[in-house]
Amino acid sequence: MKYALFLGCTIPIRGQNYEMSAREVAKKIDIEFVDLVDFSCCGFPVKSTNAETSLIIAARNIAIAAKKGEKICTLCNACTSVLTEANKELSENKEIREKVNKELGKIGLEFKPGVEIKHFSRILYEDIGIDKISKKIERDLGKLNMSIHYGCHYLRPSELYDCFDDAENPSTVENLVAVTGAAVIDYKNRLECCGGAILGVEEDIALSMAKQKLDNITANKVDALVTICPFCSIMYEDNQRKIESKFNVEYNLPVLYYPQVLGLALGIDQKKLGFRLNKIKANALLEKAGVEI
């Protein structure tokens, strides 16, 4: 199974532990990642300013993958959403496709339908499968309790993702965490948004949104929050100290990327999974799981 790995903006600069762990996990379960150096931003950051520009940038990335005959694996939920939406829109609507291709023609590219785009977690669930993953588990994480934050664009709009998971009551990532042996702890309003997209617009509102979720998650005894999107992770991990001092609360909640969790269960060295880059240190959790620090 081979995919072009789409990193987007945030992961290669601010979420290297996500990238490192995803690459390590892929190796272990026979997914080959190809790096296409011309992949840029997905287009999401300019969508609010001009949806057409966003569509052209997304189409440009898809066209680059098509030229090499590759499928696309994304790690960020926003990239997944913008690329999938563009892929669908341009495949189904000839008028928009011609308009976008006129712009792409100026840079020597052309959008053609037929490129598969999937989030890494969805590939693990749908194409690798829980059974196959369970056969490769080398370390039982049974002593750990984890809560999951899906992130909006992994699930919604549900029509965009062919309803591969139930957007109202999803279970794909629960199953992916459960296969490691870790207990999945449900919490109030688990599907609510992290607020990341409006952090630059009104920080107070965005941080309050993240705080509400951190309150709900830590109402239970959990060892970590598991995320599958770098922006959600920025809200819960990078901004956790800020939220703690702003609202006079204390969480000290490690936030892990899913491939870091799976990587531990697959027996991969935690150093290779980038644990030292986690800003809220996960040492207690690693010790509990019997991992050498």
Partner: peptide
């Protein structure tokens, strides 16, 4: 500096500038 850091983590370098994105945005953004 970012690519040096990436190299240290065993990650491949990433591209620094995209002239075609600059062109697309200049042609299509207000």
């Amino acid at each position: 500096f970012d690519n040096k850091k990436r190299e240290k983590f065993g990650l491949p370098p990433i591209k620094k500038n995209f002239d075609d994105i600059t062109k697309i945005t200049k042609d299509t953004l207000p």
